[in-house]
């Protein structure tokens, strides 16, 4: 039938490293929430050289699994997932954490937000309403966001959020060099350099004992700051 609008093709990219304990339930929750939606989607798990059964569990849940031969860091894993999404010509790609920190409803909210707007990079911000987040994490995240603004001139409330939505344009243009967690800030800088439109939307942060022990901590934040300053100095006039 002519004039019929094709449903959106969505790629949900989940970088994972040794998340065998939780990844199964993360995928099940996601699929349950997405069953109500009209768009077609593919869940892509990037197994970043895990030593446990992360890849096996994801394959049992009938998701696409891309296994890194070597552990390369969350920046590289995210880049691999988004590169795959670009090659498969998805309309929208969304990244989320594998440790159960993100609510599936927020993932759907991000997709709907992106579909209705002209934004290229949409960031799920945990700091608009930081209820449930440990004070140390709030301070650490606010500190890194402030540094991201000072070093790269990009102002966002939550520069370290793993829940991000990418338009087709952003998928084609956005590339970064960092392979570790510092890619979160570098990505914003590269988006600004490419003239992409960046925006935020509020999300919940689900902190269990398990998810609190995963991801970044404030000591790792020092390494991130070092890497960001080094990256900026090396590319001072770019």
């Amino acid at each position: 039938m002519s004039g019929m609008v094709k449903p959106l093709k969505i790629a949900i990219v989940i970088p994972a490293f040794n998340e065998a304990r939780i990844i199964g339930s993360v995928i099940k929750n996601l699929k349950r929430a997405l069953a109500q939606e009209k768009f077609s989607y593919e869940i892509i798990v990037i197994d970043d050289g895990s030593a446990d059964d992360t890849a096996t569990i994801c394959k049992k849940e009938k998701t696409t699994v891309i296994s890194h031969i070597l552990n390369s860091g969350s920046g590289s894993a995210t880049a691999t997932g988004l590169s795959y999404a670009q090659q498969q010509e998805y309309d929208i790609a969304i990244t989320m954490d594998a440790d159960g920190q993100h609510d599936a409803e927020d993932v759907i909210g991000g997709i709907n937000n992106m579909a209705a707007s002209r934004v290229d990079l949409l960031i799920g911000s945990r700091l608009v309403n930081s209820e449930g987040m440990a004070k140390t994490k709030v301070i650490g995240n606010k500190g890194l966001s402030m540094l991201t603004f000072m070093i790269f001139g990009v102002r966002v409330t939550d520069s370290q959020s793993g829940l991000r939505v990418f338009s087709k344009k952003a998928l084609g243009q956005l590339k970064w060099k960092s392979s570790g967690y510092e890619f979160c800030s570098e990505m914003l800088w590269r988006a600004k350099q490419q003239g992409l439109v960046i925006d935020e939307y509020p999300i919940k942060a689900i902190y269990t004992e398990y998810s609190k022990s995963r991801g970044q901590n404030n000591w790792n934040g020092i390494n991130i700051i070092k890497s960001l300053v080094k990256r900026r100095l090396v590319e001072l006039f770019e």
Partner: peptide, 10 residues
Amino acid sequence: LHQEISILLS
């Protein structure tokens, strides 16, 4: 290269 090999293998 690592990225492309991983995608091809999958």
